[in-house]
């Protein structure tokens, strides 16, 4: 079992790149520990900015740095970054088009029993609705590495959400397919298209294995690029299938599944089932307990597919 959370994978990439790139700056809002950024703050204190518990100025300060040629990565719990400082993300990052990378850590329901204040089951909806804001939910540490390496090469704003806990590898370290803003095809099938992002990709992959044993052929798409969504892959997967199922750690309102449903209904109408969190505070518990409760597991996804095929 992997014990490196995706947030640590981000820090590892930034540590490597900062050796030669003095413009990389990491900013935290008393969140260096929860964001796994302590090693960066120790190794590069002059490229680290602490703003205190102040997410609004976290994002605005990042935008000011970016406007002066810096490459700010501001890392803060996704729950606060995507709502409390949403306006700073909208105005200072997206509208002013500054090279600010917003790293939402401990996303979704990572904080489990801490309650709705600490959950970010709305962040895809809030951040995707902002023009010029890109939204990425990488599935495992290997894909997270590739994503951050790619983002370091561009100069546009983006929101990246990762969870708190280590997640099982979806890919092999030496063989992680990655193309920027293109979904990763994990499996191609003919009966059902399962489209997932973030921590739901592994359960989607597991579901496909379970379904295969029952003679059901599934495509599995890792839609880490929620915005801009890889529409061509959505259409291709849906066209081959009789049913589309999406899985995400987000409310069913305004999430990845909503966008998939829009694309499918416009280009190749199929039944679309969005597996997601409810429009309510989630039941308290550890991530895996909560996921299982809402059917967001390999077994749960496979069951839903069989019920609807």
């Amino acid at each position: 079992m992997n014990n490196i959370p995706n947030r640590q994978a981000i820090c590892d990439v930034l540590l490597e790149e900062a050796k030669t790139d003095r413009d990389i700056v990491v900013l935290c809002s008393d969140s260096r520990g929860s964001a796994s950024m302590t090693p960066f703050s120790v190794a590069y204190p002059e490229q680290f900015v602490e703003v205190g518990i102040a997410e609004q100025s976290l994002v605005s300060i990042s935008a000011g740095l970016a406007r002066c040629g810096k490459k700010p990565y501001c890392a803060s719990p996704a729950c606060f970054l995507s709502t409390r400082s949403m306006e700073q993300g909208k105005v200072d990052a997206a509208y002013s088009n500054t090279n600010v990378k917003l790293i939402g850590v401990s996303g979704g329901i990572s904080y489990g029993a801490l309650g709705m204040t600490h959950h970010s089951a709305q962040d895809i909806a809030t951040m995707s609705s902002i023009p010029n804001m890109r939204v990425y939910l990488p599935s495992d540490r290997h894909q997270t590495r590739k994503l951050i390496q790619a983002l370091l090469k561009d100069e546009k704003p983006a929101y990246i959400r990762v969870g708190r806990n280590p997640v099982e590898d979806v890919y092999e370290e030496e063989n992680t397919p990655f193309e920027m803003d293109k979904a990763t095809w994990i499996k191609e099938g003919t009966d059902v298209a399962i489209i997932a992002c973030g921590e739901m990709v592994k359960p989607a992959k597991d579901a496909a294995c379970l379904l295969e044993k029952d003679g059901i052929s599934a495509s599995v798409l890792d839609m880490y690029c929620v915005k801009p969504m890889d529409e061509a892959s959505v259409v291709k997967a849906a066209e081959k299938a009789r049913l589309v199922v999406t899985a995400e750690e987000h409310t069913f309102i305004g999430g990845m599944g909503s966008r998939v449903a829009q694309i499918v209904s416009e280009h190749c109408p199929r039944k679309v089932i969005c597996m997601a969190l409810p429009d309510a505070p989630t039941i308290p518990g550890k991530s895996q307990e909560v996921f299982a409760y809402y059917g967001l597991s390999g077994e749960g996804i496979a069951k839903k597919v069989k019920e609807n095929l």
Binding site: L65, R67, T98
Partner: peptide
């Protein structure tokens, strides 16, 4: 920078001033 929503500029300015110091 774009502005209009009040209360953003000072923190943006802090970022610019920090960048100046770093460089």
């Amino acid at each position: 920078m774009n502005s209009g929503s009040l209360g953003h500029g000072l923190s943006v300015g802090v970022g610019m001033a920090l960048a100046g110091r770093m460089d």
